[in-house]
């Protein structure tokens, strides 16, 4: 986190570029809607059953990332924010997976 090495307080501007335009927001919103429709579609497609869990996880991850990067501006804001959030997210994910393994959810 090089910004935090700034010798004098406030001397280094945070990495904060302009927030996206409303048009970008609408495009992201449309994508989110489409992905949700696809998810529900997949749900009713019997052909997809064998791979349905990974497909759902990937699709929802796409939505998650889009909202975090664009609506929550993580793509544009200081990396400190991404670090704080992704840190919590990764730790939570690791602990969920560890608990599932410990309770033998994967192995049955």
């Amino acid at each position: 986190m090089d910004r935090e090495r700034s010798p004098i307080r406030g001397a280094v501007k945070p990495r904060e570029r302009a927030h996206p335009t409303p048009l970008t927001y609408v495009k992201v919103g449309t994508t989110l809607a489409v992905v949700t429709v696809v998810e529900v579609g997949v749900f009713y497609l019997h052909a997809m059953r064998p791979v349905i869990i990974p497909v759902f996880i990937v699709l929802s991850a796409v939505k998650f990332v889009l909202v975090a990067m664009f609506y929550m501006h993580l793509k544009f804001d200081s990396r400190l924010f991404s670090g704080l959030f992704v840190g919590g997210l990764m730790l939570a994910t690791a602990i969920i997976l560890a608990l599932l393994a410990l309770f033998a959810v994967f192995t049955g």
Partner: peptide, 10 residues
């Protein structure tokens, strides 16, 4: 994070 004096790097 935010209130270190000037020059007080981490």
């Amino acid at each position: 994070i935010n209130m270190r004096a000037p020059g007080m790097t981490l």
